[in-house]
Design a protein around this nucleic acid. Structure first.
Lengths: 242, 242
DNA sequence: GCGCCGCTTTGATGCGGATCAATTACTTCT
DNA sequence: AGAAGTAATTGATCCGCATCAAAGCGGCGC
């Protein structure tokens, strides 16, 4: 038992994972209580981010991974020619920073789209504990694998040559991710601007705006600024498949 | 190297990693001799694939990862609506099958574009040995991270709205990957058809064919069927940046 | 309140890449 | 060598999305 200010605070700090809503989606999933506490102790800190705050910059040295506890972030990379590409929108339970491992430097910039909080996992610690706790190793891999799968979905979406399919696919997949978090799959609150979304989809913002209009005319969704209500999930999925 | 059934060859079979050209790019990188042998023992088999052979199908249960020893493969996914998307072209030293971990089923199909050979890594073994050999764990993560980085490059490429930028970026990045394998960065032999390449780039094959022509007219490359010679690397990179 | 600023929508136009179609080049088999 | 089949090139046309431009809508400070 390490010594700190008050025993009361200690318990609060140390048992956050056990009480976190995301424990079944996040690293502790499937672990027993003792191992959850070891994960808890590994978490260096839980940082709050305001809208626009940057968690890490492309090019900065890699030290830790992050798991999103609440809020939403985007990741984006800038090419040498200055072209920007939004790589992903990330929700609670997702892991960030993994692409930095190969080069020891972050390959993209992670920025908060909403007030958010993230759990910082120093990589050296994570490696050490993963070796000791097989279940953690496995769950960690699962999170990374899910991330790879999301990237593949992104590519598949950008491969569609009908722009409306891309938007429909995006809304459908966002809906599924929301549902995974226990939120309503019909009522979406987009945390990103039209511009970010357009870039993510490989379109321009005017096109995205028009397509929201068209999907609304088709009776598939209801749009009011960044509030989207999905009226016809099956229809949306159909549009997604060209 | 032909493999027969005599005990004499056993040593040869068991020390393949130590003598493999890829040992510095692949899992054994950075390991000492004893640990390399442990990796070696983990490799269930080294399978040869003919052009068109499928290593695994989307939907099939996940049992093992694969590292490419020689040749080239493509991975592709088919949406529920039947739309096909080529997700990647994979060269020696790259790891395949990781996207299956989250769901325990392969999310895409891996098919040989050339006569190839792959090393099969049963995942349960890999997990076990990773726990015991920290250096292996780290190198494994590095390979996966590189894969994630490649996916991000793919997205960035598809985000370009000038089709010629996409092709230029593809050629440039393929050149770099060839160089990493110790091959000439100027002389490329494409192992994929125009159709596969077009799909990968989010274009149609006619467009790709025309763009090869245009890059050739611009004096940046020389095209003869699937043999591409890069004449002006800097110019190619410039076209890649819109 | 009013004005300012960023975000979003809506409109008009032009171009780039998809599509349809035909020809050519290469490979394989007999 | 010739035939047949596949892959790649080249051509003509059309449509969808990018581009340029302007107006509407909210949020926020003065």
């Amino acid at each position: 038992m390490p010594v700190t200010n008050t025993a009361f605070d200690l318990d609060q700090v140390r048992r956050q994972c056990a009480r976190c809503d995301l424990r079944d989606l996040c690293l502790p999933a499937g672990l027993d209580n003792d191992d959850v506490d070891r994960v808890d102790q590994m978490v260096a800190d839980r940082t709050g981010l305001a809208v626009g705050d940057v968690l890490y910059h492309a090019g900065s040295p890699f030290r830790a991974l992050y798991v999103i506890k609440s809020g939403a972030l985007k990741t984006q990379a800038v090419s040498e020619g200055g072209e920007l590409q939004v790589l992903g929108f990330h929700l609670p339970g997702e892991i960030l920073g993994f692409d930095a491992l190969a080069t020891e430097r972050h390959q993209c910039t992670a920025e908060a789209l909403e007030p958010s909080s993230v759990c910082r996992l120093p990589y050296s610690e994570l490696e050490r504990i993963c070796s000791a706790v097989p279940g953690l190793q496995r769950q960690f891999m699962r999170l990374v694998s899910r991330d790879v799968g999301d990237d593949h979905d992104h590519v598949a979406m950008m491969g569609r040559n009908q722009a409306i399919s891309r938007l429909a696919l995006f809304l459908h997949s966002l809906s599924k991710r929301q549902a995974r978090l226990g939120r309503s799959p019909e009522q979406l609150t987009l945390s990103m601007s039209r511009s970010d979304l357009a870039n993510y989809l490989g379109l321009v913002l005017e096109t995205v705006s028009r397509l929201f209009g068209r999907l609304q005319e088709m009776g598939l969704i209801e749009v009011r600024r960044r509030e989207i209500k999905i009226l016809d999930m099956a229809g949306l999925k159909e549009v997604g498949d060209c």
